[in-house]
């Protein structure tokens, strides 16, 4: 249509409100740029951008509600059940005598080729697994601890039995494997006469060492409640009784913390005599 009707005049004052909103928006944008230019300040930047977009929003919303018709229009549905003859026509095209989908034999071999390709394409996914220690189960079961591995504190110092204080737990790590995710353990001094169950890793004058990783889902059991001899996991509040071989006493954990068998080496420092008494951390299918 070539004839253009004149622009409709809106209710009085509306255009002015929209203009003011857009101007406020521009002011917000400039404010943001200036704040940034002056060195940036997170709160101001946020407020300026919020003003800029809120101005835009208000202007557009007023425009959309007051200067153009709202509601009162209807559109028809064509319906979604296609007429049967239409379906038949489409089917006829697809199943014409020369139609590829009617050549069963060719399709079958094509399917075979595509399946083979699809399966072959899965092989490179194997590279996502590590190549060095192939079997994850062995990796999960074994830790850097072993016979003769010395216990280091978090600052990297070897530990004598008498360095383990009564009343706090000391984080310990295997020499040569301090960064390993499954190795963290803790040493703590208890009164042997309060043991209700012998520690699985044995003890040296009440000094016991257990894995630090919760047997529920692997968080470090960081909180030691000295009086009760319990350690608590901060993730889901499992607690373990150190007097009873670190068996779980409350919360969702089901297995005791594995112990670390220790001895005093010829140099006077604590060292392990083997790996943990069980795989540390969360359980898995092949865990004995």
């Amino acid at each position: 249509m070539s004839r253009r009707p004149p622009v409709a005049a809106g209710p009085p004052g509306v255009s002015r409100r929209i203009v003011l909103s857009f101007l406020a928006s521009a002011a917000g944008a400039i404010g943001f740029a200036v704040t940034y230019g002056l060195g940036g300040q997170t709160q101001w930047e946020g407020v300026c951008l919020a003003v800029a977009f809120a101005g835009l929003a208000i202007g557009l919303a007023v425009w959309g509600r007051r200067l153009v018709p709202v509601g009162g229009y209807v559109e028809e549905h064509e319906g979604f059940t296609p007429p049967p003859d239409e379906q038949a026509m489409t089917a006829a095209v697809l199943t014409a005598p020369d139609s590829p989908i009617r050549r069963r034999g060719l399709l079958a071999t094509l399917g075979l080729a595509l399946t083979a390709l699809g399966v072959a394409a899965l092989f490179p996914l194997r590279s996502l697994l590590p190549w060095d220690r192939t079997r994850p189960i062995r990796a999960l079961k074994e830790t850097p601890w072993g016979p003769g591995v010395r216990l280091l504190t978090s600052s990297g110092q070897p530990l004598r039995p008498e360095d383990v204080p009564a009343g706090t737990m000391v984080g310990v790590f295997p020499e040569g494997g301090t960064g390993a995710g499954d190795a963290p353990a803790f040493a703590v001094r208890l009164q042997p006469e309060r043991f209700t169950r012998p520690p699985s890793g044995g003890h040296l004058d009440g000094v016991v060492v257990y894995s630090l990783l919760c047997t529920h889902a692997g968080c470090p059991v960081g909180l030691y409640l000295k009086g009760t001899g319990q350690v608590l996991c901060p993730c889901h509040q499992s607690s373990f009784n150190l007097f009873a071989n670190a068996t779980p006493v409350a919360g969702p954990a089901a297995r005791p913390l594995p112990g670390l068998p220790i001895e005093v080496g010829p140099d006077g420092f604590l060292r392990a005599t083997g790996d943990f008494t069980a795989p540390p951390g969360a359980g898995f299918w092949s865990r004995p």
């Binding site: 557009l60 919303a61 959309g64 509600r65 709202v70 509601g71 229009y73 559109e75 549905h77």
Partner: peptide, 18 residues
């Protein structure tokens, strides 16, 4: 068999951008 409301243009364009 129908939908009643506002049209995409102009009303809804403005309101959706808002």
């Amino acid at each position: 068999h129908n939908v009643v409301g506002s049209r995409l243009y102009p009303s809804y364009t403005l309101r959706s951008l808002a």
